[in-house]
Amino acid sequence: MPDLPHLLAFIAAGWLLNLTPGLDVLYVVTNSLRSGVRAGIVAGLGITAGCFVHIFAAAIGVGTLMATSAAAFTVLKYIGAAYLLYLGVRMVLSRPAPPPDLGRAAAAGGEQRSLKAIFLGGFWTNVLNPKVALFFLAFVPQFIAPGADDKALYFVLLGVLFNLNAIPVNVGWAVAADWMARRGAVQKGMHWLDRAAGVLFIGFGLKLAFTDAPAVRVGH
């Protein structure tokens, strides 16, 4: 493991990266705006679960395969892009939801299913995005000493630490979005916010679809 100064630098860098608005933040904020802070937190946990898949896959070599095989990267890239496009189109075409309080009360019986769908949405959004795997392959090894005996173990430990540190950030985004949703002006424009978020998801999907496999150096 890195020494204390490098470990603190790793944690700080992770927080800064998680605070940067992107696909994950958009997913958390959108669900929190629509369905409340609980849904936003569940969305963040789904994203975290998806990141764990990439962490362990990278540690056993799957991530390295995607970084070095254009075919493997392309297959996952198009699957991920299609999924993002599906989410975006569904949001753009969604019907206006009932007022938050009435909607949540009316949906109380189906809340568990809704939260499950939100969790799985965040999970698959990450699992099907090869750029997440390449991010971990590029970022985490910088904090592993070249002479470390078990680099795979250190990779997993640092990846888990990065993921756990992301949870309070995602909770913060969910709480902030839920606070905004309680303001009258935001409630009135909720449907248009859904459409705007859907357009952004479509943009992320198209961007991923036209992304070339980058040359990522693995190992030391």
Rank of each mutant, 00 (worst) to 15 (best):
D3P: 06
A9H: 11
F10V: 08
F10Y: 13
F10I: 02
I11T: 07
A12S: 06
L16S: 11
L17G: 15
L19S: 07
D24W: 05
V29S: 11
T30Q: 14
T30Y: 04
S32I: 01
R34K: 13
R34D: 15
R34I: 12
S35C: 04
G36V: 12
V37T: 14
G40L: 03
G40C: 09
I41N: 02
V42K: 00
G46W: 13
G46N: 13
G46H: 11
G50V: 12
C51H: 15
H54W: 12
F56I: 05
A57R: 01
G61E: 01
G61Q: 02
G61H: 03
T64A: 15
T64F: 06
M66F: 14
M66L: 15
A70I: 12
A70P: 01
F73D: 11
T74F: 01
T74L: 04
L76A: 14
Y78Q: 14
I79N: 11
Y83A: 05
L87T: 06
L87E: 12
L87K: 12
G88R: 13
R90K: 13
L93D: 02
L93K: 14
P98Y: 00
D101K: 10
L102F: 08
L102T: 12
G103F: 02
A106C: 06
A106G: 05
A108D: 01
G109L: 09
E111G: 06
Q112M: 13
R113M: 06
S114R: 15
I118Q: 07
I118G: 03
L120C: 07
G121K: 10
G121V: 10
F123I: 02
T125D: 11
L128K: 13
A133D: 00
L134M: 10
L137N: 07
V140N: 05
V140M: 02
F143H: 07
I144E: 08
P146Y: 08
G147M: 03
G147C: 01
G147F: 13
G147K: 02
D149A: 15
D150F: 02
L153V: 06
L153H: 05
F155I: 07
L157Y: 02
L158G: 09
G159P: 08
V160I: 12
L161C: 07
L164F: 12
A166Y: 00
I167Q: 04
I167S: 03
P168A: 06
V169K: 04
V169R: 01
W173K: 12
V175G: 09
A176V: 11
W179M: 15
M180S: 11
K188R: 15
G189V: 13
M190Y: 14
H191E: 15
H191F: 12
L193T: 12
A196L: 08
A197M: 07
G198Q: 07
L200M: 11
I202H: 01
I202K: 05
F204P: 03
F204N: 03
A215C: 10
A215Q: 13
G219A: 11
G219Y: 08
